[in-house]
């Protein structure tokens, strides 16, 4: 393999994204060490207190420790985002592979379905469904996944279309290999790059959607928490109770930017590889 001069340049986007996400991850992992207080234990006499030595990040309306809630809520936010991204990527990849390899009218119908689903504003549909049903975390994960797989399916499909007529696919077809083998062993590994990039970007999209839902009171329900719901707690007086809104908002922002940086970094990395 030829080594390109660009390869020696560090991928700044990637590095800063990894550092950002790494820091947030460490915060979520080791957060409980910073505060021994349970995130649900209430103390109404200590309601809405600004940061102090006993509560480093202050308390919320019910006197619960905000730091503990940020750690716990962050874990929920991350788990929801990663779980629904994982599901969306699986659904999208399988549908994209299937649609492209079958071709013909099956492909046509599946892709029109994707178009229709993409035409709905994601937040609106998710809002509608979650608003109608009783919201639980697992329902939230499902709904977010069911409205996020389409872009992945599109990417996979267009990649498979471009791989399908490559010489090496023709060659293995001519050997008489079975279709599932060709699709999963020969095509899939060669379309994974763009899928990984868009899954990382999808994580941050889903974090934003989940935060918006929780902010609107439709996502994660009390006494559980997510960054969006903590942001919501500080909604009434965002300046007066800044220790509720600002840290939660910053954590959402940092995480979203971090995942986007990693996504862009991966994109660059994979583009470099294509030239080689």
């Amino acid at each position: 393999m030829k080594i390109l001069p660009q390869k020696t340049q560090t991928n700044q986007s990637m590095t800063s994204g990894c550092i950002t996400i790494g820091l947030v991850f460490i915060f979520l992992l080791l957060g409980p060490l910073l505060t021994p207080i349970n995130h649900t234990s209430q103390n109404l006499s200590a309601s809405l207190q600004p940061p102090s030595s006993s509560h480093w990040m202050g308390t919320d309306y019910y006197g619960r420790d905000v730091l503990a809630r940020l750690v716990f809520g962050g874990r929920i936010t991350w788990i929801i985002a990663i779980a629904s991204t994982f599901m969306a990527v699986n659904i999208g990849t399988i549908i994209g592979l299937f649609s492209a390899y079958q071709g013909g009218w099956i492909d046509l119908i599946v892709m029109r379905l994707v178009d229709v689903m993409l035409a709905f504003p994601k937040l609106f549909v998710v809002l509608l469904i979650v608003g109608l049903g009783a919201s639980s975390t697992s329902l939230l994960i499902w709904v977010l996944a069911l409205f996020s797989w389409m872009e992945i399916a599109r990417i996979v499909r267009s990649e498979v279309m471009s791989q399908k007529n490559r010489t090496y696919i023709k060659s293995v077809r001519a050997l008489g290999l079975r279709t599932p083998r060709i699709v999963f062993i020969h095509i899939l590994p060669n379309v994974l790059g763009p899928v990984i990039v868009s899954s990382v970007l999808l994580i941050s999209t889903i974090i934003l959607v989940e935060s918006s839902l929780s902010f609107l009171g439709l996502g994660v329900q009390a006494p559980s928490a997510s960054w969006g719901s903590i942001l919501n707690d500080g909604r009434i007086d965002p300046l007066g109770t800044w220790w509720l809104s600002v840290p939660a908002g910053l954590l959402i922002l940092t995480t979203v930017i971090g995942f986007n940086l990693i996504g862009n970094g991966l994109h660059k990395q994979l583009d470099l590889k294509k030239i080689v």
Binding site: R166, T167, Y168, K170, S171, V172, R173, A174, L175, G176, R178, H186, P189, N190
Partner: peptide
């Protein structure tokens, strides 16, 4: 598919003829 092995192609673009992975 069962008959395919009997007829084997060899193409010009050997760079593309093998799965890179």
């Amino acid at each position: 598919r069962k008959l395919r092995p009997k007829i084997q192609p060899v193409f010009q673009d050997y760079n593309q003829a093998l799965n890179p992975h």
